[in-house]
Nucleic acid binder design. Structure first.
Lengths: 201, 201
DNA sequence: CACGACATGATACGGGTGTACCAGGGAGGT
DNA sequence: ACCTCCCTGGTACACCCGTATCATGTCGTG
């Protein structure tokens, strides 16, 4: 059979099976056996490559973070060169919003992990990344730049505005996932608020 | 022992035990046995008053909705009489934000139910209430009134603004529950945005 | 006073869970 | 050629889950 197989590739295959289940059926349905079946391997294999379930969960979360980061980078790259502050802000926020199947998948899976963290906060400590704060800082920097360029009302507070935009997108995403509104409607609301922000006073 | 006991009271007692567990340990930890122990009754009793677990879950969700509604009514009542549109908007949005232990409890429990719905959407159909849309309409109405009274820039779109505020508060709540920021910080961000909205142009 | 409906207790059943254990087979180095 | 180690399969264990069943005590009502 297979010998000296690529460990990283196998781990990726299994972790992505976990993410697929978390997306379609929720994390609580992602049992070791279900993951094994989804990945097309035996239960023993899953145990071999991930000694414990918590390890698998954390590894998959890392990969999910990398996916959304890649997606964001892609949107930023499509924002033109050189990118304007407004283009960057729009790209970052739009990439988070669940509009297409891919972003729906990512957002829904993130939501599944979110409640896992709520009920078991120590998981978050083992997973040191604090992306939201970094994102907020990045957005605040872009907003400050746009303000100095006269594209934004000088009375606006960059930090408050950045935090508000991020929370807005997060909330819009929740409403889309909850079926309250479509992804396009959410995007319309976001662009509406961005238009209001970026109009010269 | 007890005879002809008050059914409604017992059901309330059990359902609130469920909500307490959902708050502190998450819904996935709210097993029938755990609920029974938390309520101080036997497993059989829980089964007796709620034939199925889904029934218990739905009943508890109803009570949770009633709780948040009561809380909102309380904040609205404290908004002065007669209440101004701005006061009403502020009251409604502030009542949702997890600032004190009570609202933290409610918001966290709602979050637990939220992911339950995400992984099992049919639950939502059996629970017909669509509060968010009603709330959004209410907020839009108040914003329109304030706009006509000259307290808000006439260029603002009431529906878009209402949806944005609700999503903002929702996202802020998530960040508070996730430990990214304190309830007071979230409230500061909200009031900042309300101040911007309600300033005469 | 007796009977039947209500209320409660103890326990069993089938199934799913994460993890642990035992076994073997094929390639690499010596 | 043999031995060792990486990889994989099957299966067992102990536990928790939701639900069902049997039994019993207690009262309101006839």
């Amino acid at each position: 059979m297979n010998v000296r197989v690529d460990h990283e590739e196998r781990r990726r295959q299994i972790a992505e099976a976990l993410l697929r289940i978390a997306d379609t059926q929720g994390l609580q349905s992602a049992s070791m056996r279900a993951v094994a079946a989804e990945a097309g391997v035996s239960l023993r294999l899953v145990q071999y490559y991930f000694a414990t379930k918590e390890g698998l969960l954390l590894d998959a979360l890392d990969r999910l973070g990398a996916q959304i980061q890649a997606r964001m980078a892609q949107w930023i790259g499509a924002a033109g060169s050189p990118p304007t502050p407004r283009g960057l802000v729009t790209a970052v926020l739009s990439s988070i919003l669940p509009t297409d199947p891919e972003s729906r998948r990512i957002t829904r899976t993130y939501a599944a992990y979110y409640t896992l963290v709520l009920s078991d906060p120590e998981v978050l400590e083992k997973h040191g990344t604090a992306q939201p704060d970094l994102l907020e800082g990045f957005l605040a920097k872009q907003i400050r730049a746009a303000r100095q360029a006269g594209e934004i009302d000088p009375g606006k507070d960059p930090e408050m505005t950045a935090a508000g935009l991020l929370a807005l997108v997060n909330g819009l995403g929740s409403s889309v996932l909850g079926g309250q509104r479509t992804g396009d409607a959410a995007l319309a609301i976001l662009t509406h608020h961005l238009d209001e922000l970026f109009r010269s006073p």
